[in-house]
Design a protein around this nucleic acid. Sequence first.
DNA 1: TTCTAACTTGGACACGTGTCCAGTCAAGTG
DNA 2: CACTTGACTGGACACGTGTCCAAGTTAGAA
Lengths: 191, 191
Amino acid sequence: MSIVARQVVDGRRAETLERLLEAGGEELRAVGHEALTVRTVAARAGVSPATAYTYVASKNHLFAELFWRYLDAERPEPTGTDALARLRSTTRSLCERLAAAPELAAAVTPALLSSDPDVERLRLRIGGEFLARFAAAIGDDVPEDRVGPVLEALVMAFSGALLQSGMGLIAYTDLADRLDPVVAAIMEGHL
Amino acid sequence: MSIVARQVVDGRRAETLERLLEAGGEELRAVGHEALTVRTVAARAGVSPATAYTYVASKNHLFAELFWRYLDAERPEPTGTDALARLRSTTRSLCERLAAAPELAAAVTPALLSSDPDVERLRLRIGGEFLARFAAAIGDDVPEDRVGPVLEALVMAFSGALLQSGMGLIAYTDLADRLDPVVAAIMEGHL
DNA sequence: TTCTAACTTGGACACGTGTCCAGTCAAGTG
DNA sequence: CACTTGACTGGACACGTGTCCAAGTTAGAA
């Protein structure tokens, strides 16, 4: 049972949904997000466009859904004895994951800016996920009264890094290396 | 003489360009970036769509150009005796400027993600502008060997904040207040 | 004034998005 | 087995994007 677009999906529909998302991922890898059309994805999934649109509200929604699933699929424990090391391990895992699917990462950034309500839900979930991962990494190593701003700085910096990667200013493979010193700079004086 | 789209523009064309961009701004304020179409902008400027496209390569390019001009038009001196105060004044001016034109800000975020080469140029300029403003605010108050990461952290956090505003997670009017503690957190231990 | 080069235009084009709906199909229930 | 119900489909639709081009129009040089 999976929650998508407009409704909960199970039974026969669940399989079709799986096929559709699978096809979406393949198509994305194959032709990139600019060239991908909902109709080609539908065709790849062996489904009519009209049907595809009953599962996915829009192209942006498709990208957001794919990204969420990709993100959700791997949840590495932060490793390290201090907050900084755990943060580093967290950003590194995230960045590696992005680097392993650059087309998806490039697709999701503009997609999440859509005002589509189905995208909105996922946007909140994804944002919340980043926050939760950083919070988990920090643990309670930062004084209570400063966790707020520090976490917010981390999330903003990470979103900013994503944005800049989406723009092509930073290669996804360089992300982690660029982010390490930034994270260190943010944490300086808070541990 | 102004540089746009494909070529340098002057003389007769310069006026038409001005009219077109003016119309773009009005239309943006009037109907928002989702409802704006190149054709309505052209109509408002009293020009045919075909003509509009000789000035502006795409809708995204139009937004980027409008934003760049808006940003470029006001360059407040950072005020304050220490780097933190000057940074605060810099982010506040930027945020106020964004808050005064939320439609433009909302339009430019997705627009800058376009792969359109004309957008690319502006993207670099705009990114460079943010960097330059923060660098100017910091002056040489941060030890040489740490300016790099600190500046990068600032730019990333600011881009991230823009992204989140574009997503509607932060109202443009709250931006400055949200950013202040983040900037403070980043600068902690570097002054 | 006439010529020329730059500028503008209408209108069609290919293509993508997302919507709609009447009609077909398949499964499992009674 | 006939029936109901939910899933799926084909095909048209309105609308936007960005491109193209042959045919005007305009301004200034000769």
